[in-house]
């Protein structure tokens, strides 16, 4: 069986990729995609920890399912807000949405 650490390293890599995407991408939709990658990394962590821990303890799986559901809700609200921003500012580039500062 593949050792647990492989999954954890993979999840950590995915998480870092997502974080890089959030911090480096300028397009709002791409930023949201980055957040999704981070949440997927969490899910891999949870599933792997569940599989390699006590199988009868369902907490890990339940947690992963709840993360799916919440991620979907968050993205739905996120895209709605991106659309409302696009209607007012005519852009979804995060750098150009800079009315509020100082």
């Amino acid at each position: 069986m593949v050792p647990l650490s492989w999954y954890l390293i993979f999840a950590a890599g995915l998480f870092s990729l997502g974080l890089f995407g959030v911090l480096a991408r300028r397009n709002a939709v791409a930023i949201l995609l980055g957040v999704e990658l981070m949440l997927n990394a969490v899910n891999i962590n949870l599933a792997a920890f569940w599989r390699y821990g006590t199988i009868t303890n369902m907490a890990g799986q339940v947690f992963a399912i709840i993360v799916f559901a919440v991620a979907a809700a968050e993205v739905a609200v996120g895209l709605a807000l991106v659309i409302s921003v696009y209607r007012r500012h005519n852009t979804v580039v995060a750098d150009e949405i800079d009315m509020l500062k100082w």
Partner: peptide
């Protein structure tokens, strides 16, 4: 609209980071 958008981006990012912490704690 800009406020809602910024709040969402910061909130989604930080809650994802915190969730990663939760998964490790588990």
């Amino acid at each position: 609209t800009e406020a809602g958008f910024k709040y969402l981006l910061f909130g989604a990012l930080t809650s994802a980071v915190m969730l990663y912490g939760f998964s490790l704690l588990f």
